[in-house]
Computed example of a mutant assay.
Amino acid sequence: MSFILRWLFALILLAATYNPTPFNFVRWATTSWHEQLPLAVLLGLVLFVGYVIYLRATLRSIGGFGMLLVLALVGAILWVLWDYGLFDLSDPKLMTWVGILALSLVLGVGLSWSIIRRKLSGQYDVQDDDEV
């Protein structure tokens, strides 16, 4: 359950930033920044903090190679779905949602990796001394 919540928050973070509907931060900020600049800056900073938390945790837990590996796995799954005719690549809106889903899976796995690894191996991660 904890992985699903972390993944869901990553999905919400990415979709709130940009998605193919009119309801996202990028479209709202580009059309309303001159009227509501303080609110646009505040919401942009809130999103930025969310990205810093997720990206830092992901880079520390699985690293850049791990991120590429998770993306490659998601890409291979999508390739298989496309090869069997279950997935259509011609719809740009669908592809945007697939990209958001793929990136959210990377961030969700990155944030949950210590928990997943502990459950699989029974070993706890050791904290760095400089963060205590």
Rank of each mutant, 00 (worst) to 15 (best):
A29T: 06
Y84G: 14
I115A: 02
L14F: 07
T30V: 10
L86D: 11
Y124D: 01
D128G: 08
Y84L: 15
S61A: 14
D88S: 10
H34E: 13
L89H: 12
F9V: 07
I100F: 02
W7R: 01
L55R: 03
V70I: 15
D125G: 08
P22F: 06
V41I: 15
Y84H: 15
D129K: 12
G63T: 12
N24I: 08
F48N: 05
G110C: 03
M67E: 10
L13I: 04
V74F: 13
V74G: 06
A102P: 07
L11F: 12
V52E: 04
G50F: 04
T31E: 12
F87V: 03
I4Q: 00
V26F: 09
V80H: 08
W82M: 14
V98G: 01
H34W: 14
V132E: 03
I53G: 01
L69C: 14
W7S: 00
Y51R: 01
W113Y: 10
V52L: 13
R6T: 03
E35Q: 13
V126F: 00
Y84S: 12
R117T: 09
M67G: 15
M67V: 15
D129M: 10
Y51G: 02
W97P: 03
D130E: 07
K119Q: 12
L45D: 07
W82P: 08
V106K: 01
P20T: 06
Y54T: 06
G85L: 05
L39Y: 09
L69G: 11
R27P: 02
F25Y: 15
D129F: 13
Y84C: 14
G50C: 02
V126L: 06
L11M: 06
L55E: 01
L101E: 07
V49N: 07
M1L: 10
F65L: 10
D129H: 12
T17H: 08
M1Q: 08
V80L: 14
L111Q: 05
P20Y: 05
S104K: 04
H34G: 11
I115V: 06
P92R: 06
S90L: 07
I100V: 11
Q36S: 15
G63Q: 11
R117F: 12
V80D: 07
L86M: 13
E131S: 09
S104F: 02
G99Y: 02
I77D: 04
T58Y: 01
L59E: 08
